[in-house]
């Protein structure tokens, strides 16, 4: 059974804020989903190779050369807060 403390720990890792009024519901829901996927435990997989990706592709590499110029101004139009070409965030270092 998933505990409230564990959900709290997950929310910290995931950078999500769980509102106190949502906590009980969330613990119940997550516990039910995890209980459902736990049926995989019984699957007879032995040492079969994990399938990370459906195609057994080799990662193709290209030459490391500049292809597209980065238009900083166009990209930063989507940012909530920029100043002088930089992203502005709350103070990190005191």
């Amino acid at each position: 059974m998933l505990s409230a403390e564990e959900v709290k720990r997950l929310s910290v890792l995931a950078r999500l804020e769980v509102r106190p009024e949502d906590q009980d519901r969330l613990v119940r829901e997550l516990d039910r989903i995890l209980g459902f996927v736990r049926q995989l435990e019984a699957a007879p997989t032995g040492e079969i190779e994990p399938l990370v990706h459906p195609l057994d592709l080799i990662q193709p590499l290209r030459d490391d050369e500049v292809r597209e110029p980065v238009d900083r101004e166009a990209i930063q139009k989507a940012a909530p807060d920029v100043a002088e070409g930089y992203y502005r965030v709350p103070r990190v270092i005191e």
Binding site: L30, L40, A43, P50, V52
Partner: peptide
Amino acid sequence: ILIGTYVLSHGYYDAYYLKAQRV
């Protein structure tokens, strides 16, 4: 996101994530 964080977290990775990839 929370389920994903759980199955990738320390102590559960093999039991959930790797196991699922094997299946």
